[in-house]
Simulated scan of single mutants.
Amino acid sequence: MATETHNSLIILGSGPAGYTAAIYTGRANLNPILIQGMQPGGQLTVTTEVDNFPGFEEGIQGPELMQKMEAQARRFGTQIISDLVVQADLTAERRQGGPIRLTCDSGDVYTCDALIIATGASARWLGLESEKKLGGYGVSACATCDGFFYRGQEIAVVGGGDTAVEEALFLTNFASKVTLIHRRDSLRAEKVMQERLFANPKVHTAWNSVVEEILGDPKAGGVSGVRLKNIKTGETEILKVTGVFIAIGHNPNTAIFGDQLDKDEQGYLITKANSTATNLPGVYAAGDVQDKTFRQAITAAGTGCMAALEAERYLHEKSGEAARI
């Protein structure tokens, strides 16, 4: 039977931003509820080595890092719910004068006075079975996360926009050769970035080409190559690479909020300057759901901390108490 539960603070999302917000608000004795969402642990659960998160000298596996964050959040009293919000009533009109109202896939309803949105962004993928099979074994959507592991190797980047060019240029710091695969014969990226790309001797291009299959075996070293198809000639070829970076963009997970929150043209939540506050009082956004520039675990955690501090102050100002964080 569906239930309805009220809590002063609810956090949506269970990546670094969400768990950090839970740790901080838990330490402030706010006893937050965190609703994990569709992918508990966020994008790091499909990342193998995380070598750039401070405090882990030898690196750490992505899923293990998220398990540690979850355990720390629980330690400070966070109630973690395995469910997915499918309807969010945030505005005064939708709430009809009541608190923020969240309806979950299970039918359970949660209401709150303050909300931290940390639902993240999902990488766009090619939709290949081989891509899923080799995810974390040579297939990645984050050059800054995983580029270091391909020092001296030949790799490929798929895409033709600013993201693809940025990732390709970044990867030339490590790889011996970077092949940019694009389905057209010209790029959409800014001209100045294209000039930098074409001037780099490590960069090669595969024009008018799409990836038909990513080759390799997770149990035998991961990615070994890609099969490309020229969309003009129909010819196929095998490109030998040990890593494939998919750079065709991200989609922020903001659809359930509709037009209740201010968004940019790509759907990312807009927050006030030097703040995680959205256009609605008591509603804050942290992590990749509002950050299309950095998209790192550490920056997401930082904004999760900011959102926690702001939400805690909002709740105590509302109640007339002094902030405790």
Score class of each variant (00 low, 15 high):
residue 250 H to M: 13
residue 228 L to P: 08
residue 263 K to D: 05
residue 207 W to L: 02
residue 203 V to R: 08
residue 263 K to T: 14
residue 203 V to S: 08
residue 195 E to P: 01
residue 288 D to Q: 04
residue 242 T to Y: 08
residue 291 D to H: 11
residue 224 S to Q: 14
residue 206 A to S: 14
residue 208 N to T: 02
residue 186 S to W: 07
residue 229 K to A: 08
residue 277 A to F: 03
residue 278 T to E: 02
residue 272 K to T: 01
residue 213 E to P: 08
residue 240 K to W: 00
residue 200 N to P: 07
residue 284 Y to V: 06
residue 219 K to F: 06
residue 209 S to D: 01
residue 196 R to L: 11
residue 214 I to L: 03
residue 256 I to V: 13
residue 202 K to I: 06
residue 223 V to P: 00
residue 201 P to D: 12
residue 241 V to K: 00
residue 204 H to N: 14
residue 268 Y to C: 06
residue 255 A to P: 01
residue 220 A to W: 04
residue 219 K to T: 13
residue 279 N to P: 02
residue 258 G to L: 07
residue 194 Q to M: 10
residue 206 A to D: 03
residue 187 L to P: 09
residue 195 E to T: 12
residue 201 P to F: 05
residue 219 K to D: 13
residue 220 A to K: 15
residue 295 R to P: 04
residue 237 E to Y: 01
residue 244 V to K: 02
residue 261 L to Y: 07
residue 255 A to M: 02
residue 226 V to K: 05
residue 185 D to C: 03
residue 249 G to F: 09
residue 220 A to C: 03
residue 253 N to E: 03
residue 260 Q to A: 15
residue 287 G to I: 02
residue 247 A to C: 13
residue 244 V to N: 06
residue 188 R to L: 05
residue 196 R to P: 00
residue 199 A to P: 00
residue 296 Q to I: 04
residue 229 K to M: 12
residue 212 E to Q: 14
residue 209 S to R: 00
residue 258 G to P: 10
residue 243 G to Q: 09
residue 266 Q to P: 00
residue 248 I to C: 13
residue 271 T to R: 05
residue 243 G to V: 09
residue 285 A to W: 09
residue 295 R to K: 15
residue 245 F to Y: 14
residue 226 V to H: 04
residue 294 F to I: 14
residue 236 T to M: 06
residue 281 P to F: 03
residue 233 T to V: 04
residue 283 V to G: 10
residue 252 P to V: 08
residue 255 A to E: 12
residue 288 D to A: 04
residue 288 D to P: 05
residue 194 Q to H: 04
residue 204 H to T: 12
residue 208 N to V: 00
residue 193 M to G: 02
residue 278 T to A: 09
residue 272 K to S: 07
